[in-house]
Simulated scan of single mutants.
Amino acid sequence: MGKCKVAILLLWVFFALCTTILELKVEARAASSFLEKEIEAKLKLLNKPAVKSIKSEDGDIIDCINIYKQPAFDHPALINHTIQRIPDFLLESQSSSTRGATNASTDVFQTWQKSGSCPKETVPIRRIRKEDLLRAVSLNRFGQKPPEPSVNSATNTKLNFSNLDYVNLENRSVNPKLYGDHNSRLFAAWTINSYHTTGCFDLTCQGFVQIASEIALGSTVGPYSSQFNQQYEINVGIFWDRNGNWWLRMKDKIIVGYWPAAIVGNLQHSATLVQWGGQVFSYNVKTTPPHTGTQMGSGEAASGRFGFACYMTNVRIKDYSETLKYPQFVSTYAAEPYCYSALNDVQYGKDPVFFFGGPGRRPPYCP
């Protein structure tokens, strides 16, 4: 009789254990199903129906989206937005006579362009995939920069355009967390409160209105500069119009699109500060030191100058005189000067060249 009780007790324990495991499996399956639904919903929001799709040799898929159905128009402030007319001054070539002083080539292109082109009235948008979302810290913050510390973040409005070191001397470690590889890519980013709740890279959120059919933000760019070889440059500019919009122009003639006045906050009136340079970020480094081992630019210090360090030249701003001019007050700053450096090379009779970059962690100088 005692043996039967033990057998029944063991059977009950085994049954209870099996029930617990079954419940865990059901809960895990339910959680997985919920995540799948969230991912599918996010992909549907990000990727609009394509008129045409282009498979790039670098693995990207570029969707040609009807210009009036792009993500920007999902923004509450842009639901009834009318695409703005390109200002006349943007259609005029404003190349400086100093262009070419560095003997660099401007023959730079995006890789996807070798595989096709988008028809008129469409804009090329890099397709977001499931694996892109799975790499994100969270679905809600996909495509966003980590929040930046700011004394008054409510008025911290930024527009930023780069390809993360467009003269990059073969350092192609860009943003693998977002893009899934180490290619150098053209990207644009914006925020009106230090990325706490607004802004993103490229077109991963509503805001930037694209009008060009030639440029896909977030796509691979090339060729690359290398030491003792040809250097490559891309000319970019961001311009304000009297309606409060900020326009992005490339290669002196390609009008990529604009950030509408309705979303740029205080910037719709004017800008009080212009910055150019490089930025490095790592999720793995929580304190300083240790520093991140991520290189900036080519990985060479600014003192290496042309052919070695990353650089920007032909720097110009436009003030209320509405003419392009070199800024009157220019200063350089490096938050971690033993890890990364900045140098504004000013020589009499020559256009100043701004150099920047560095190797990152390099004990004992940059621990």
Rank of each mutant, 00 (worst) to 15 (best):
T204F: 06
V174E: 12
F208V: 03
N163C: 13
N193Q: 08
G237C: 04
G199W: 07
L169D: 08
G222F: 00
L178A: 04
K145Y: 05
F201N: 00
I234D: 07
N183P: 07
N140E: 15
P149C: 03
Y195N: 03
C200Q: 01
Q210N: 11
F187K: 09
T191G: 06
E233I: 10
N168K: 14
F201Y: 01
T220N: 09
D202E: 11
S173R: 12
E148Q: 11
T197E: 11
T155C: 10
E233C: 04
P223H: 06
Q227W: 08
E233F: 06
D165L: 06
N183Y: 08
F142K: 03
Y179N: 10
H196M: 12
Y166D: 14
Y232G: 02
V174S: 14
D202F: 06
G180F: 00
H182Y: 09
L217F: 02
A188N: 10
L186S: 13
V209N: 04
A212E: 15
L139P: 13
G237R: 05
L159T: 04
S225R: 03
Q206I: 06
D202I: 04
L164G: 15
Y166T: 13
G207F: 10
Q231M: 14
F228H: 12
L159E: 01
Y195F: 14
V221F: 07
R141E: 05
G207V: 09
A189Y: 00
H196E: 14
T191L: 03
T191N: 06
V174T: 13
W240G: 11
R185T: 02
G207R: 08
V174A: 12
F161C: 10
N163P: 08
Q144E: 05
K158W: 04
Q210P: 10
W240I: 07
L186C: 12
W240T: 10
C205R: 01
V167D: 15
